[in-house]
Design a protein around this nucleic acid. Structure first.
Lengths: 161, 161
DNA sequence: TATAAATCCTATCAACTTAGTAGGAATGGT
DNA sequence: ACCATTCCTACTAAGTTGATAGGATTTATA
């Protein structure tokens, strides 16, 4: 990346968004809850995971609208997983929050679009990006929220209650 | 990706930029030239590859500043590769134009930054994105400009001269 | 039934990035 | 001298990101 203006600039281009990282961390936090029936409040998640509270609310709403989470209002409200953590893939989360996994529109499975100005039947660069997509999906599809949670619990021992 | 405003929106988030696609196509065009000593003019590339001329100029300049291309001014001017096409990797091109390959700052080899709000030593999501990075680099490092050019020449037969 | 606490919703915002364009200066061959 | 080319700085409109503001709605409980 050619930086002609700033130096020591933190470049996060093409990376997953902060929002997406927050979403993954929030879901891990919920999945790490002992009792799967006890809803987790957004304020708890915000405090534990260091996520801006108001921003987190919009993220949790997206995840609820996409049928990953269930929510309950009121004083005993909060969020619970709508399906087992082992059935929620990293792919799914990224697709909901950030969108495409592929690096080119014309090789995207869920967000396909033709690359204008390029004849797809003779496209020179399609092949290599199809390979990248397949390898990436291979990993992300096989990494479930349960896997991420187990990693989390291994590294940060929970206090008993 | 949660779209609450627009529908049928073409989402290219996290994908490589148009600029990067233009850069790759321009380099393939130059690499496909019969005589490696005859410079290729930006106007030719722009016409053949359907790239906005002025925009292409800034891209070629970036590639020259990054020592991928050599340029010559004047009426017989143009651009030539500074090293063999087989020694220019897709990784290199993407890094110059778009920057990082990795999906998380904390697993980037060339654009490392710590993810604020996340303890890296106990990070839950680092592992999976390290795997994605390695698989992606495995493919992009082994796909040279020569490979892309050969694909191009196979699909679009050149007129003899 | 009031109240406190939680989710839910719409709107707004500053900073930044993207995909260019404008206008011309510098250079080199004829 | 002329012309074609690269080279350079600056500018712009549109979109995205990472939030925050302010309150409406819902639910358990005193």
């Amino acid at each position: 990346m050619v930086l002609n203006k700033k130096i020591n600039y933190i470049c996060e281009k093409n990376m997953i968004s902060h929002k997406c990282k927050y979403a993954i961390r929030a879901l891990i936090d919920i999945a790490a809850q002992h009792d799967p029936n006890k809803p987790v409040m957004s304020s708890e998640i915000a405090a534990r995971q260091q996520i801006p509270k108001k921003f987190l609310e919009t993220i949790l709403r997206d995840l609820r609208n996409s049928r990953i989470l269930h929510s309950r209002r009121g004083s005993t409200g909060g969020y619970t997983l709508l399906k087992p953590a082992s059935e929620i893939t990293t792919t799914e989360i990224i697709r909901i929050i950030d969108g495409p996994i592929a690096l080119l529109p014309c090789v995207s499975l869920n967000y396909y679009a033709s690359c204008e100005g390029c004849d797809e039947s003779t496209c020179q660069i399609k092949g290599v990006f199809e390979q990248v997509r397949d390898k990436t999906l291979g990993i992300l599809n096989h990494t479930s929220l349960a896997d991420l949670r187990d990693q989390y619990l291994k590294n940060t021992p929970q206090v008993g209650d």
